[in-house]
């Protein structure tokens, strides 16, 4: 696990194999995925541990991550397969713990409650 933004969080793991475009795919007021073509369609990301391959699309998505945090509908932590600048800086400013790891492995734990400690580099199932 590579630490990008430090911290610790507990929440329900929401895993997807699809990249996420934070600009456009997510309703920034509700934290719900609004893109019908995404496999997390209608899913709320609020207080979740969001595991996804990487972000895509416009760099303005970083502000959306900041908006999600201000509106209290942001994920509690994010785990990515590879870093992209939109997600990294969005999490850095919004102070959302972020780590890079092989997220495909996490599919098996999908929907279970986990604790991520980015500083210690650990993930535990509650």
């Amino acid at each position: 696990m590579k630490r990008l933004v430090g911290g610790r969080a507990t929440g329900i793991l929401v895993h997807t194999d699809q990249p996420i475009n934070f600009l456009g795919m997510i309703n920034k007021d509700t934290g719900v995925i609004q893109d019908a073509s995404h496999d997390l369609y209608k899913r709320s990301l609020r207080d979740t541990i969001l595991a996804f391959p990487h972000g895509i699309g416009s760099s303005v998505g970083a502000y959306t991550i900041h908006s999600l945090k201000i509106n209290n509908v942001a994920p509690s932590a994010m785990l990515c397969g590879r870093p992209d600048l939109t997600v990294v800086t969005g999490c850095a400013v919004a102070n959302i713990p972020l780590a890079i790891l092989d997220v495909s492995e996490m599919k098996l734990q999908n929907n279970s409650k986990i604790t991520v400690d980015v500083d210690a580099g650990t993930i535990t199932r509650d």
């Binding site: 900041h66 908006s67 945090k69 201000i70």
Partner: peptide, 16 residues
Amino acid sequence: LSGVNYNTIGDAGEQF
């Protein structure tokens, strides 16, 4: 810089 259009950065961006 990006992050200029109020339609995209919204109140969070404006306040920030």
